[in-house]
Design a protein around this nucleic acid. Structure first.
Lengths: 113, 113
DNA sequence: TCATTAAATAAGGAGTCGCTTACATGGCAG
DNA sequence: CTGCCATGTAAGCGACTCCTTATTTAATGA
């Protein structure tokens, strides 16, 4: 995936990993430190840090400093966008009308040549 | 991500690319051949073929042979699963209640469950 | 039969992903 | 200050992604 990916791609990419989805599930219970977050996983702390970076890049979490701890908080706005996209395309009945609009919107984020 | 990724990861991964999302949008208008699909994109046919393979692996399209053409059809079931996951996690009401619960637990100095 | 067309596959290259271990940063308690 | 603690960053490795061009497969129709 190219470096300058659009926002929606970043969100879907962030969701495309079971560890990151588990982190999101966990964060629904409230803000959590990185250590607490890493505890249930059979993987090193740096690996979790890197997953958090992906989630942060997608706007799905916020990290705030609290002494030597980082408190991770879930942000749901990107999930709203993802949900909107999926729901729009899973609806079979309003197909033709927004199809053109849809395509134009999608193609705008693309490399053209 | 190892080769044996779970189904949901495959779907999100397939959606994490603007070209593939545009293909899905296009297929909402009805079954389409690979050539028609490739036409609006500034990229080679094999590249489109490979994108279609990713979509097929995620269960998002079906390809049926029709003479020397392949007719691609959208399947929405995987989108249902993706939508279900996202909606479950973006539900703000649940999140708020869980958050309140979490706060109370913290105030009591209770350590986990 | 043979050339044409539609599409898939092969091979390869630049870049990214997900993990590791090792080291750096920065708050804190003695 | 000094040594812990929670975390982030660096470097490196193997696998994967996304694209390319070249080749292959398969159906068509003269």
């Amino acid at each position: 995936m190219a470096g300058a990916a659009d926002e929606l791609s970043l969100v879907f990419q962030a969701l495309a990993d079971p560890t990151r989805r588990a982190i999101i599930s966990r964060l629904r219970g409230g803000p959590t430190t990185v250590g607490e977050l890493a505890e249930p996983f059979a993987m090193s702390r740096p690996a979790i840090s890197q997953h958090l970076k992906v989630l942060e890049r997608a706007g799905l979490i916020e990290r705030t400093a609290d002494a030597q701890w980082r408190r991770c908080t879930l942000r749901t706005e990107p999930l709203d966008e993802a949900s909107a996209w999926v729901d729009r395309h899973r609806d079979e009945w309003n197909e033709r009308f927004d199809l053109l609009d849809e395509r134009l919107r999608e193609l705008k984020g693309q490399t053209d040549a």
